[in-house]
């Protein structure tokens, strides 16, 4: 009996990171929330391994939540819970992403365009 070729099926499922929770304690987080570490993970005890890893990732600067999730190889929804817990504990700072500038409304643009055309026609 020859076993089939190995596949890279995950061994450790994501729900272990948060014991099954995916509802963060704050709903202000999204994929582009920017995270900075507020504490050095080496100085804190009692962190779970995944929290330590997240803080280590952020030691060099800031990362977006989506990037942190990709580096941890965890779903974004789970990382949100981790982040929310760490923010609650004061070990992490999360900042809303810079919003896209509001685009002017289409009607205004059309009016301006019309105005320019009328200018040009003079």
């Amino acid at each position: 009996m020859t076993p089939p070729p190995a596949d890279d099926r995950r061994l450790v499922p994501a729900f272990l990171a948060t014991t099954g929770r995916a509802r963060p304690s704050r709903n202000t987080l999204d994929r582009l929330t920017v995270l900075h570490g507020a504490t050095d993970p080496a100085t804190v005890t009692g962190l779970r391994p995944e929290e330590t890893r997240l803080l280590e990732l952020l030691r060099g600067g800031a990362l977006s939540l989506a990037e942190a999730a990709a580096h941890l190889r965890l779903p974004v929804s789970v990382v949100k819970v981790l982040v929310a817990d760490l923010v609650d504990g004061g070990r992490l700072m999360a900042r809303a992403p810079i919003p896209d500038a509001e685009l002017p409304e289409r009607q205004i643009l059309e009016k301006v365009l019309n105005g320019l055309r009328t200018l040009k026609s003079f």
């Binding site: 994501a14 729900f15 929770r21 995916a22 509802r23 963060p24 929804s77 789970v78």
Partner: peptide, 11 residues
């Protein structure tokens, strides 16, 4: 990403 959906998926 929806937290409720995600939690059900984890369950």
């Amino acid at each position: 990403d929806d937290p409720f959906v995600a939690e059900d998926l984890l369950t």
